[in-house]
Design a protein around this nucleic acid. Structure first.
Lengths: 160, 160
DNA sequence: AGGAGAATCACCCGTTCGGGTGACGCGGAG
DNA sequence: CTCCGCGTCACCCGAACGGGTGATTCTCCT
């Protein structure tokens, strides 16, 4: 968590520095006040939105369920691997199983074959946290091993 | 809630203070412009954060939109999950990877989420044997973990 | 104001895995 | 006949995993 704060602080500093630089150039070039203000406003607006989003990690966006429409597959193409539509998460199952957004992330990383440590690095949390999430996922899926969890999740249509 | 307000207030104060400090360096230039920029920056920063928070606060808004999608035939397809066409093993890949029949069995059991012990019981061999086979599979697939092996095998079209 | 849920992190303990090495028997190719 | 690939098994060791418990912080809901 301290890492996060540090990162944001640093980023903010860089942003302000950049702002100052831009400001100086515009001053020298005697551009219009409005333009300067606009740039500053836009820049900080974007930064603010980004910051707000990051700080309040809100998952759970709008879900677009894509209903696959079968298209006949040419025989010769069918040989290598059967075609399948884009993966559609079974939101029903997810809700049934009470899986939280974070747990879903863990589950996906799990299916990708990552170790706890790799997940921790990737998701920017400690390994202990990953283990906790993973344990909950196992409990909710009724799995004893990660491979089993992946298998069960796939069967339930929770992951691709 | 008090904390939040306090935090924002503090943050704004710090921001303004920092801006003011930097401002002194450009004393020779227009003061009003500096102040203007700082105020705008702080204002939009706060507004951005607030906006970001409000906009991304779509927790319960889970809008499920159903969209008909035409399923094209991918040239190089990922392994499907929901019940689709019958799985066709990519024998080509199997031969490339020099996987023996026994190793394939192990790989399948692996993907089914079985532990080494369970595989041993099921295949009627000792756990050590399973481990040996598994180790060879890992080596041939270039995997370090069983979950990774499963993932790689699926991508290669070796298993369903 | 208080409680529930989510996410974060820590520590312990026992089990499982993965990697390395060595060994043995069998069957087919040379 | 001999070599080699395959399948079988064993042992060791360090790393990773799974299970349990407890704690803190923050947000949301009531």
């Amino acid at each position: 968590m301290k890492k996060t704060i540090l990162l944001y602080g640093l980023l903010g500093g860089v942003l302000i520095a950049a702002l100052k630089m831009v400001e100086y150039r515009y001053l020298v070039l005697e551009h219009s006040l409005e333009m300067y203000g606009g740039i500053v406003a836009a820049l900080f607006s974007v930064m603010g939105i980004w910051l707000g989003r990051k700080l309040t990690r809100t998952r759970e966006k709008l879900v677009v369920r894509e209903v696959a429409v079968r298209v006949e597959v040419p025989v010769e193409v069918r040989v290598p691997v059967p075609a399948s539509g884009p993966f559609v998460r079974n939101e029903e199952r997810v809700r049934e199983l009470l899986l939280t957004p974070r747990e879903l992330e863990i589950l996906e990383a799990l299916a990708a074959g990552l170790s706890n440590k790799e997940m921790a690095d990737q998701l920017f949390v400690s390994e202990n946290t990953v283990k906790t999430h993973a344990a909950r996922v196992f409990a909710k899926l009724g799995a004893r091993r990660r491979t089993q969890a992946v298998q069960l999740a796939k069967e339930a249509g929770i992951i691709a």
